[in-house]
């Protein structure tokens, strides 16, 4: 029988940032994550996804996909045969400005202002409750595989 987890209920407080963003990896960190210790040469394809040739190993591509309320920058590594070697999210940005159905519930917090110290310096990082599927990213990866077939293979 598991113990009840230690759980401290604090006064319900709300943080309403204009938008939420999370940066996981820089381009260089994602390169190292998918192709450790490799050398990269930027390919100038004049296309939106940025493509690097990974010397002796394949291709590294950084692309962006846009969902209804989110923008995701991600990286895909392809091996020399065009097979996916790894996918990493670089940055995730969301904004729900146009989607609030009933902002009236916020009136119960009248009196608390943006300057209120409660939770303001709290890093919003463990969020329970999802609003997105990874469909856009998986569709993006499929498009990058087509890009490989049409523009990179044999290059």
């Amino acid at each position: 029988m598991k113990q009840l987890p230690v759980f401290l209920l604090t006064p319900v407080a709300v943080v309403a940032p204009a938008a939420y963003a999370s940066v996981y990896l820089s381009v260089e960190q994602a390169q190292q994550a998918i192709f450790p210790k490799a050398s990269f040469v930027l390919e100038d394809l004049a296309l939106k996804p940025r493509v690097w040739r990974v010397l002796g190993a394949g291709w590294f591509i950084v692309d962006q996909v846009v969902g209804k309320s989110e923008l995701i920058t991600y990286a895909v590594g392809l091996d020399a045969n065009g097979a996916v070697r790894g996918i990493e999210i670089l940055e995730y940005r969301e904004s729900h400005g146009g989607e609030v159905r009933n902002p009236g519930w916020r009136r119960q917090f009248v009196g608390k202002s943006a300057a209120d110290p409660v939770r303001l310096d709290d890093d919003i990082r463990n969020i329970s409750g999802a609003t997105l599927s990874c469909r856009h990213v998986t569709e993006g990866v499929k498009r990058l595989l087509v890009l490989y077939e049409t523009a990179l293979k044999g290059r």
């Binding site: 987890p5 230690v6 759980f7 401290l8 209920l9 604090t10 319900v12 407080a13 709300v14 943080v15 309403a16 940032p17 938008a19 939420y20 309320s69 969301e94 904004s95 729900h96 400005g97 989607e99 609030v100 159905r101 009933n102 902002p103 519930w105 916020r106 939770r119 709290d122 890093d123 919003i124 990082r125 463990n126 969020i127 329970s128 409750g129 999802a130 609003t131």
Partner: peptide, 30 residues
């Protein structure tokens, strides 16, 4: 302990703090 926020069900851009969790799990359906 880690702070956990939950998205408000009618206002998903808003995050409600539900407190701090140590060695535990949190799941939300909405």
């Amino acid at each position: 302990a880690q702070t956990v926020h939950v998205r408000h069900p009618r206002d998903p851009g808003c995050f409600v703090s539900i407190g701090m969790v140590t060695d535990g799990a949190v799941a939300t359906s909405a």
